[in-house]
Each structure stands twice: as C-alpha cells, then as structure tokens.
Design a protein around this nucleic acid. Structure first.
Lengths: 221, 221, 221, 221
DNA sequence: AATGAATGAGCCTTCATTCAT
DNA sequence: CATGAATGAAGGCTCATTCAT
C-alpha cells in the first residue's frame, strides 16, 4: 500500500539537494552572479550534511554538528540559512514539491478519488516517516519551527483539500473532515515511526483513511 | 462521546497523588523505617508540585521549578525519583490504574465490545489530552522517557488487548490490529491537541476507531 | 586634593567584599541558614575575582573569565548574580555606601559647603577612577547596566543634591545646577582616566567645580 | 552660546565627503592610475554610506551594514580603509579641518581670547555631540580607534593650544591648563549627550570653561 | 535525609577579517 | 579591483546532575 501506484511522482529520497532553494523552477538566470561556483558547492555540501545530520540526529541536530559534517564554519550556515527552519525547508523542498505535484496527477490517474487520496497520503507519510523527527518538529511550538510549519501547511493543505473534496463529492467519504485536521492527524501518526518496530505508520494511517469512508458506499455497491 | 457511560471509572483529575510511587505492587514492608513520616510528606509535596508544573509547563518542566514549587531542594527530587520518568509515573499512577480498571468494567457494562473499546479509548484520550506534553513524552526517543513509555505500555496494552480481542471475536472489528499499535497511534493522535484549535483529537481518534470496523458487521447485524 | 580631609569615610579600595549583598546592615540574622560557609566563601571569591577582572578588563570582562579567576563554573556566577549589573553592584556596594555616608559627615565637618562638596566629589571621583570602565558602563544604554545606573543614581544623587543645596543657600555657588547633571558630568570626566597620563581627572573635575562658584563671592570677601 | 558668532566656520554637516581620504596633504600625483574613476566613485559611495550608518547606528555600525548601504562588498571597504579609524577619519575629515581653520578666525574676530576659546569649544562640542558615539570612540582603548584618536589630537590640540595661550597671556584664564587635557575633558563631557535629556553638554562645558577664568581678571579689567 | 551550591557541557549567535574567484 | 563567501573566535545563557555540608 505504501507504493501501490508506480512512479506517479518523482522518486523521493533524501538526496535531492543542490538547486538553490530560492529560485524555484528558474531556468538559467539572465544575470546570475559569477562566482557562485564555490558558494553553491558549499550550499550543497551544507544541504547534504544537514540531510545526513537530520537522519542520524533528527532535525534538532546542533548547528555546529552540521557545519562540521559539511566541513564549513558555523557562520556559513547562518549565511545561507538564517534560521533552522530555512535550512530544513531547503533540505526537504523538493520532496514537498513532489508531493504538491503528485496530487493532481494521482487524482487524474487513479480509479477513484479515495484511492488517489490514499496514495497521496502514503506519499506524504513516506516523506515524513523517513525524516527522523520531522513530524515532531512540525508540531513544535518552538519559534524555530513555526516557519517550517507554515511552509508545510501552505504547500500541502490545498493539495490535500482538493483530493478530499473530490472524494467527498463522489460520495466516497465523509464530507465533514477538513484537510488541515486530516493532515495534522496524519502528521501525528507519523511521529516516532522509526522508534518502535511494532508500530506501522502506514497501517495506522490506512485505518484512519478507512474511517473516512461512508457506510452508504456499500449500499450502492 | 467522551464520557458516555456514567462513572464506570474513578474520576480522573490531576490530583491523585499521595500513594508511594515507588512500591509498585509491594505488600507491606517487613520493617518500615522510622522517619518515613516527613519523607513521605515531602514526597507528596513533590508529586503535587510536579503535577502542577506539568500542567503549566509540560512534562519537560525544569527540575528546579518543581523543587521550588514543592518547597524542597532538587536533591530531594533525585532521592525520591532518580529519573524524570519515575516522577511522571508516580504523578500519573492513579489515572493509569483507573484506566486499567475501567477496561473490564466497561466490557461488562457496555452494549457491545466495540462500544466498550470506544469508551475506553475515550478515557485514555481524555487523560492524555489534559496532560500537556505527556503524549509527546511518550513517543520521545529521549532516553529519559523510555521507562515512562514502558510503564504506560505495560499497564495499558493488556487492557486494550482484551477489549480488542473481545470486539474481534464478536466480529465487530478487524482482527489484525494489535493493541500496542492502536495504543501508540491513539497516543500520537493526542499530541499537540491544545496547540491548534482546528484539531480535534476526539474526532480523529473516532475516525481511527471507525476504520477498525468490519464492513460485514453491519450486514450481519 | 584627592584626600585632603582625613578619613571622613572608610578607606575605599577594591577589596571591600564579603558581606552578602542582600542584607544591608543586618546584624546576625536570627535564622541564617547553616551551610552558607562554602557558598559564602565562593561568593567572596567571586567578588574578589570580579573586582580584579574589572580592574584589568573593565566591567565588560567576560563572564567566563571571572568564573575562571574565581576558580568556579559560570553557573555559579549566574546563581549568585543573575545579571551582570547585580555583580557590579555587589562589588561596589560598600564604596557607594561609603560615599553616601560621607556626604553629611563632610558637610558637618568642613569649613564651607563648597569645600564639603569638593571633597565629596573627590571621593566619588576616586571611586570611579579606580574602577576601570565603570564610568562608561554607567552611561551605557546596554540593558545590562540600566539597573546598575539606577542604583548609583538613586543612592548618590540625593547626597550630592544636599551638598549642592547647602552651597547654593550659602551663596557660594550657582543655584541652577542640578545634582543629576553635575554627577553625570563628573562621571563623564572620569572616563578614560587611566588611559592617558596627560589627563588628570581630579584637575578637570576641580575646574568644573570652580566653574560653579559665584563671582559675587569675591565682593563679599 | 552654541552659535554665537555667525558663520565663522564652514557649515558643519554630515555630508562632507568626496576628497580622497588617503592623500593627506598630497599634491597632484605624478601619474594617477587610470581606473581611478570608478574606484573613486566607490569610495565616495562608501563615505556617504558610512556617514549615514554612523548617524543611525553610531560609529560602531557593523562593517557589513556600511558595505550594504554603499552597495559594495565588505572587501571594498577594507581596501579603501584598512581600519575602521581610517574610515571615520575620512568621513569627518572636513569637519575637523573646519574646526582647525576656525581657530585663528575666531581669535581674530572675537572680543577676547576667552570668548574665542568659548566659541571654538562650542564648535567642537557641536561636532562631537551630533556624531552618535564619536566621543566614546575617541576615548576607547579599542585598538580600532587609536588612529582616530591620534588624528583628532594631532589636528585639534594645536589649535586649542593657540587659543588657550592667547587667553592665558591676556590674563583671562589660568595658565596651567594644557590643551590636551582640556580637549580630553571636553570630549568626555560630550559622551552620552543624546542619552539623557537631563544632561546638557553645552551647559557643562560652559561650567568647565568658567572654571578656567582667573578671579583677578575681573578686578583688573 | 535534605539541601541547594557548584559544575560545565552544550547550544545559539554575531561579526571582524581574510581570501579565492 | 571588487566581491562576498567563509571562517571561527568570542561571548551569552540554561539546565540536568552531582556532592559537600
């Protein structure tokens, strides 16, 4: 169930770093400053190091550790990413975008809106689950993470809402569940996924989605 | 829904302190040391203070704050409760026990096993939701909390399992969900309940439980 | 000129440390907690170390340096003196009090109010001059020092005002100079005293005080 | 009193930039390098930016802020002005020179040497007071500012000395005050002028100058 | 037994200054 | 020449935990 739909979206792994986080979908800029060569190299090293640090220590990894991994000074991190949230956003930007783009694709290619929703949520879960501590951070009221939280919400909630609406209109699911609360619930279910082998996030999320289904659906079948 | 069954269990509030947290299931000791009078008084003050601190600052409340609230030195806390988990366990011991005892009671007094399960889970949710940060702590990989986690699991999983089995045997729910995973999932859904007004823990937990139901159950009834 | 009047005040050097900063003029407290022995020893070491650090590095001396000098950890400083201002106040408390007490004494024992004022200012100057950087700190808008500033102002301005009023009423000086501005001016004149051998603070302060005199004074002579 | 003499000196504002700060008293170089056009443009932008930064943040304004304001890189600042003092000197060069030139002018045009001295000091005070933090910087032992200090001393002390001597020879003031110490004292009195509304720099400086007067001077005149 | 003083690791953040491009 | 990326020393502050009294 966690990957039941071929490659509807670009492969989501931890290594999609490199492109400058600020130019989304930019082609070759007309006036790109020259010596971005080493700066960019550094930024990439940083993103890679951060990704690695996040994997082993979670998103709370000390700034200095990340700097050390990347072989740069702490100042370099602060230059590129003024806040920790900026760094995390940059690290995971591609995956989030992949999730965003996957929404309409899945809706178009799946047998039913509910199936599309399920697959999409699976994608989202895969993302969160493989990022140690990310789900926790998203719920943290630590000011360090509010930007991050906002970014995720802003990006993904609309996509989820679209899938939800489609399924609701098709009479496949209860119409009274908002995207935001579903996302938060799913996010929560992803917490600590890698900490307890007895806990299978996907199973539990599937349970939640099953709970969405309308009983009436059966009568029509 | 959160308390649909009269007082099947003892009232759960934050003040169930007093019993000595350290002798779990111990009988009367053979020779109780003398000065236990004031030591016990101290312990109780500590529990009360900790409960209060947990309410206002969460279970991460600084050790010193708790000591100050209790009017004792930090050393005294460490004497009575070597780890933070010990303290938390002691603070919430009664509530946990109430949950444990509620299981069989509900099973005996509810119309169906699924109804009993639902009520019991509601009880558990009520407990967690009112304890700021407890749910988080339960999933934390912070070594400080492993004992705490174990205590909750050991105490409550058997009870939940009993309810689950009963419902499964009655054909009311899917039989392939383990108590431990359900408990962890519910625990997760309780995280951050008080941080986002758009998020309703009980609604989401109800969704999860709805997902447990067997479609066939309806047609056979 | 800087010490022309015998010992009107207790000797002002850098070593008047020791008594707990919080019990001003207390006798033996009825319920002084017992093991203050080592804590007190530490506090004294801290005050001594701070005084030394202030002399060589000014009041901006890094917290860690002071801790090291005293042979304690930084936490110990923060325990005893939550803010830097608290530490400085404690270090200089006695001198300030000596200044406060010297005011009336000098007024009673000097030939004229102006003479008393002059001597008192000399005392104040001696104090500031020997404390490297204190005068600067007093003018700083750094929030760290506002408390300090307030303490000095509250303590010394009234004393200065009394002397000033007396001299003004005696017709010895201009009556339109406020204590606060005179103090600030004198404080300023003390800045950098130990940085330039060509600059003699006392001489310049004397000039300022001479400027206070009323021309009319001559006609009466 | 702060401007009692018409425009004895060129207007002193914050915008007197432009002349190349590094060739002090140099004649036209034999072979001016070619690309000086844009380099010079840069330097001017820098001076303008620095002046602006000094106004809003004081002379302690971060190097990068200045660079940003000027639209250049920090390296460019270091190229043109190896030390911060060099930059400050360049920025305030014109005003200092105006002060230097004002000395003889005032001496020639004022009724008395003491009056000339008073007016000249007022000029100096006006200059320092309007430059946030300049006075402090002049007294700082921060190696960053020693050059600055030397520049001011070298430029202005001789002028002040001339006025002082003239007044002393005229029997208007005490003859035992050196220019350097008077300048330092006045400089000190300018510190923190904009921080406390109760403190009036000009009033205090006037007091100091009044203190210079010889009592006999009046009776003999 | 209780106390609370002391410790110090650990984290964050800012900037002056250098140097490769 | 100009740039601005990178560096890293410096300093501040907060607890969890130990231990002498």
């Amino acid at each position: 169930m966690s990957d039941g739909g071929g490659s509807a979206v670009a492969d989501i792994d931890g290594s999609d770093i490199g492109s400058d986080g600020s130019d989304i979908g930019s082609g070759p800029g007309p006036a790109a400053p020259r010596q971005r060569a080493d700066a960019r190299r550094n930024k990439e090293a940083l993103l890679e190091a951060a990704a690695a640090a996040f994997v082993s220590s979670g998103v709370h990894a000390p700034v200095r550790d990340i700097a050390t991994r990347a072989g740069v000074g702490v100042g370099t991190i602060y230059r590129h990413f003024p806040t920790r949230a900026d760094l995390i956003v940059a690290v995971y930007r591609h995956q989030v975008e992949a999730c965003v783009e996957a929404g309409p694709t899945l809706l178009a290619n799946s047998g039913s809106a509910h199936a599309a929703l399920t697959r999409w949520i699976d994608l989202f879960v895969d993302f969160l689950v493989t990022k140690h501590g990310l789900a926790e951070a998203l719920r943290s009221d630590d000011p360090t993470f509010v930007t991050l939280h906002a970014y995720f919400i802003d990006s993904l909630v609309p996509v989820c809402a679209e899938l939800l609406d489609a399924a609701a209109e098709a009479g496949e699911i209860r119409p009274d569940i908002k995207a935001i609360e579903l996302m938060l619930a799913v996010g929560n279910l992803c917490i600590g996924a890698d900490r307890d082998p007895r806990y299978d996030t996907h199973r539990m999320v599937a349970l939640l989605l099953a709970g969405l289904r309308l009983p009436r659906a059966q009568s029509s079948s």
